Simulated scan of single mutants.
Amino acid sequence: MSIKPDIVQRAEQPYIGVRGTVTMDTFAKIADRIPELIGSLIQQGSQIAGAPFFRYTQIDMDHELEVEAGIPITAAVDIQGDQFTDVLPAGRYVSYTHIGHPDQLADITGQLVNWAAEQGLTLDNTGQRWGCRLEILKTNPTVEPDMTKWETELAIRLAD
């Protein structure tokens, strides 16, 4: 499969999130927190500003991943427990939308990183640490339970 990414400009985006250190086998530990975040925002009457996402801050596929689950917000919110608020940074991003099972995302992300290198683009990372590397979950699994039809935008900020 050959992907055709875009370069997009993204504005700064506030969000509420939770973070954790997981492996590929324990990823659900962070992924399963998205409904809790959405529920917290609904309970407060807060406006959700976009699709839920995972933000990868450190990746060692052989060991552990530092990952945040986040929900974009329009205004300040009250946080509970280990929740936090932060801002996704503005900038130019390499972006590609994948339609298919989430198990394919590691391969697709590899293709995206390779494509950027072939184009002479520098990604915002230092080794295993990433400035802003996102998987944006465009499909609501309660509406579309067939994971082979899920739409996920991969977006990685460029270093410029």
Rank of each mutant, 00 (worst) to 15 (best):
E12I: 05
E12D: 11
E12Y: 00
E12G: 08
Q13N: 06
Q13W: 07
Q13M: 10
Q13R: 12
P14Y: 01
P14M: 08
P14T: 00
Y15T: 01
Y15N: 01
I16S: 04
I16V: 15
I16Y: 14
I16L: 14
G17W: 09
V18N: 05
V18R: 12
R19K: 09
R19F: 06
G20A: 07
G20P: 04
T21G: 06
V22N: 01
V22I: 10
V22E: 00
V22S: 03
T23G: 04
T23Y: 04
T23P: 03
T23W: 02
T23L: 00
M24F: 01
M24C: 03
M24V: 00
M24G: 02
D25S: 13
D25L: 05
T26A: 07
T26M: 07
F27H: 00
F27G: 03
F27P: 01
F27Q: 02
A28H: 10
A28F: 05
A28M: 10
A28I: 14
K29M: 08
I30D: 08
I30P: 04
A31Q: 14
A31M: 12
A31V: 09
A31F: 04
A31E: 05
D32R: 12
R33C: 12
R33E: 11
R33Q: 15
I34C: 10
P35T: 00
P35G: 11
P35F: 06
E36V: 15
E36H: 13
E36I: 07
L37Q: 08
L37G: 09
L37K: 13
I38M: 14
I38L: 15
G39S: 14
G39M: 15
S40K: 08
S40N: 12
S40C: 13
S40P: 01
L41D: 03
L41N: 03
L41S: 09
I42P: 01
Q43S: 10
Q43C: 03
Q43V: 01
Q44T: 15
S46H: 13
Q47D: 11
Q47T: 14
Q47M: 00
Q47G: 05
I48K: 03
I48G: 11
I48N: 10
I48S: 07
I48A: 09
A49I: 11
A49E: 08
A49N: 08
G50C: 12
G50D: 06
G50W: 11
G50M: 09
G50Y: 06
A51I: 02
P52I: 05
F53R: 08
F53D: 04
F53I: 11
F53P: 01
F54K: 05
F54M: 11
Y56G: 02
Y56W: 15
Q58I: 02
Q58E: 12
Q58V: 02
Q58N: 10
I59W: 05
I59P: 01
I59M: 13
D60R: 14
M61Y: 08
D62A: 15
D62T: 10
D62E: 13
H63W: 07
H63P: 02
E64W: 09
E64C: 04
E64G: 05
L65Y: 07
L65N: 05
L65R: 00
